[in-house]
Amino acid sequence: METQISIPVQTRRFLDLAEFLESKGDSRDPVLAVSDAIDYWMSNADWKPELLKVSSTLGYQWKSLFLPDGTEVRMQYKGNWYYAKVEGDKLMYEGEAITPGRLANTISGTSRNAWRDLWIKRLADSEWLLADDCRGEAEQT
């Protein structure tokens, strides 16, 4: 026989699950549904990193704004999108390490304000955010 452990779950949460299963015509024991849910979560967490709460010290420090490893950075110029990504502790663009200011200037071929031209999407972000807005949030914390 396989050993088992008990995992504390709020009673209301467990009853909600039992009611949900019944309403959907699923005759499974809610305890088995919890086990299935754990299996499902683990298989999805392999390809959806936002499901994991990983604390990493790797990332790129842009003045007061920390961009964790895996952060995407983009800029639109003349109707085209250009992308860079934080890999380890470097911001990488076209295979080379670059600063945000140099990225904006390289893409445009002119002098630009990277805070107002670059958009950021960290692993935990659901949408792209203007770098200047991220900087404002970082400075408030």
Results as ranks from 00 to 15, higher is better:
residue 1 M to G: 12
residue 1 M to W: 08
residue 1 M to R: 11
residue 1 M to H: 11
residue 4 Q to K: 14
residue 4 Q to E: 11
residue 6 S to M: 07
residue 6 S to H: 11
residue 6 S to T: 12
residue 11 T to L: 13
residue 11 T to V: 09
residue 12 R to K: 15
residue 13 R to H: 04
residue 16 D to E: 15
residue 16 D to I: 15
residue 17 L to C: 14
residue 17 L to P: 07
residue 17 L to I: 15
residue 18 A to S: 14
residue 19 E to Q: 15
residue 20 F to Q: 15
residue 21 L to P: 10
residue 22 E to D: 15
residue 22 E to K: 14
residue 24 K to C: 13
residue 25 G to V: 07
residue 27 S to G: 13
residue 28 R to V: 15
residue 29 D to A: 14
residue 32 L to A: 12
residue 34 V to S: 06
residue 34 V to P: 02
residue 35 S to E: 12
residue 35 S to W: 05
residue 36 D to P: 01
residue 36 D to S: 04
residue 36 D to K: 03
residue 37 A to S: 10
residue 38 I to P: 02
residue 38 I to Y: 02
residue 39 D to K: 08
residue 39 D to G: 10
residue 39 D to Q: 09
residue 40 Y to F: 11
residue 40 Y to E: 09
residue 42 M to N: 11
residue 43 S to N: 04
residue 44 N to Y: 04
residue 46 D to F: 03
residue 46 D to I: 09
residue 47 W to P: 01
residue 47 W to Y: 03
residue 47 W to G: 04
residue 49 P to L: 08
residue 49 P to M: 05
residue 50 E to F: 13
residue 50 E to H: 03
residue 51 L to Y: 06
residue 51 L to V: 02
residue 51 L to D: 05
residue 52 L to R: 08
residue 53 K to N: 08
residue 53 K to A: 08
residue 54 V to M: 08
residue 54 V to I: 10
residue 55 S to D: 10
residue 57 T to P: 08
residue 59 G to H: 01
residue 59 G to W: 00
residue 60 Y to Q: 11
residue 60 Y to H: 15
residue 61 Q to R: 12
residue 63 K to E: 13
residue 67 L to Y: 01
residue 67 L to S: 01
residue 67 L to P: 01
residue 69 D to F: 00
residue 70 G to V: 02
residue 70 G to S: 10
residue 71 T to I: 06
residue 72 E to P: 06
residue 74 R to W: 04
residue 74 R to Q: 03
residue 74 R to T: 05
residue 75 M to Q: 04
residue 76 Q to S: 07
residue 78 K to N: 06
residue 78 K to M: 06
residue 81 W to V: 06
residue 81 W to R: 08
residue 81 W to Y: 08
residue 81 W to I: 11
residue 83 Y to D: 09
residue 83 Y to N: 07
residue 84 A to D: 13
residue 84 A to C: 08
residue 85 K to C: 10
residue 85 K to Y: 04
residue 88 G to M: 13
residue 88 G to D: 14
residue 90 K to R: 15
residue 90 K to F: 05
residue 90 K to N: 15
residue 96 E to C: 14
residue 96 E to I: 14
residue 97 A to W: 07
residue 99 T to V: 14
residue 100 P to Y: 10
residue 100 P to T: 03
residue 100 P to I: 13
residue 101 G to Y: 11
residue 103 L to P: 00
residue 105 N to D: 09
residue 107 I to H: 01
residue 107 I to C: 00
residue 108 S to N: 02
residue 109 G to L: 02
residue 109 G to C: 02
residue 110 T to H: 12
residue 110 T to Y: 03
residue 113 N to R: 10
residue 115 W to T: 13
residue 115 W to Y: 11
residue 115 W to P: 02
residue 117 D to C: 01
residue 118 L to A: 06
residue 118 L to W: 00
residue 120 I to L: 02
residue 122 R to F: 02
residue 125 D to V: 03
residue 126 S to T: 09
residue 126 S to F: 00
residue 127 E to N: 08
residue 128 W to I: 09
residue 128 W to L: 07
residue 129 L to M: 07
residue 133 D to P: 00
residue 135 R to Q: 12
residue 136 G to A: 05
residue 136 G to M: 01
residue 138 A to V: 00
residue 139 E to G: 00
residue 141 T to S: 01
residue 141 T to C: 01
